[in-house]
Simulated assay, not measured.
Amino acid sequence: MAGGFVLIVGPSGAGKDTLIALARAALADDGRFSFPERVVTRPPDAFERHDSVTVDEFRAREAAGDWALAWEAHGNCYALTAAARRQAESGLVVVANISRGSVAEARAALPVLAVVEITAAPEVLAARIAARGRDGDQGAGLASRMRRSDSAPEVAADLRLINEDAPATAAAKLKALLLSCIER
């Protein structure tokens, strides 16, 4: 089996982290997969698991070569670690949530097996963003996230999941895609 990254992308509120968590749980006993947490310059919350660091720590680790991929979005810095890259290079399928704007860079820099775009109708996205209650996700912040969704670059995804029904439905499709990556 050749390892590599399965990159999960999509607009805020699409349910990317929910579906990744469901896939992680469904594949917990399958040692061929890794679901590393991103590093983000924002405190974690109930909707997104990640390692939280300060901007200064992020920049220091970036300078030290700790990141396989780094990007900025919504006023925060995000990264996938060099350790995740080593996992992919060792043969694991590494499932990671990244920015749509970073897909081209990721395809050039990482062993990418597939890109999965998860999305939903604008009214579903807006309701989910507002419901999570993060600072900056209300009023003008919500409008800003929705505008970013509309203006995001087109992504050449290998699979597109519409996540508007029960999350288990889209999670089953995501799990099937992840398992198909093993068989390539």
Rank of each mutant, 00 (worst) to 15 (best):
G4T: 11
V94L: 04
A126S: 01
L80N: 10
A96H: 13
R85E: 12
D29R: 10
H74D: 08
I98F: 09
A120H: 03
V112L: 06
H74M: 05
F33W: 00
D30H: 09
S99Q: 10
G65W: 05
G75S: 11
L125V: 11
T119G: 04
Q87V: 10
L27Y: 08
W67A: 01
R100H: 00
D66Y: 02
H74W: 07
G3S: 14
V95L: 11
P111N: 10
P44K: 15
G65T: 05
A26T: 10
P43S: 15
V93S: 00
N97L: 00
G3L: 15
T41Q: 06
S52Q: 11
L22A: 15
W71S: 07
R24V: 01
I98T: 15
N76I: 15
G3F: 05
E48F: 02
D56E: 10
E123M: 04
D45P: 05
L22I: 14
F58Y: 07
G10Q: 02
H50E: 04
G10K: 05
T54W: 06
C77P: 03
A23N: 13
F47I: 07
D29Y: 01
V9K: 11
E62K: 03
R59V: 02
I98N: 14
T54N: 09
K16W: 03
R85I: 03
T54L: 04
I8W: 01
V124C: 08
D17I: 04
G4D: 14
T18Q: 08
P44C: 13
L92Y: 04
A60R: 13
G4A: 12
F58K: 06
R86M: 00
A121E: 12
L92P: 12
Y78N: 06
R24Y: 00
V53A: 02
L19Q: 14
A25P: 13
K16C: 02
K16R: 05
A23R: 11
Y78L: 00
R24E: 03
Q87G: 12
D30P: 11
V94S: 02
A127I: 07
L80S: 11
E123K: 06
P122S: 04
V116Q: 03
C77K: 09
F47W: 06
A68F: 01
D30C: 03
L125M: 07
L125Q: 05
V124W: 03
V95F: 09
A88M: 07
A83Y: 00
A64H: 09
A106V: 13
V53D: 04
A73N: 10
C77Y: 00
A28Q: 12
V103P: 15
P122H: 05
L22H: 14
S99R: 13
L19P: 15
I20H: 12
R100G: 08
E117R: 14
G65C: 08
V40A: 06
F5K: 15
G101A: 05
L113Y: 07
V53K: 10
F33M: 03
A21S: 12
L80F: 11
A104L: 13
A73M: 11
R107F: 02
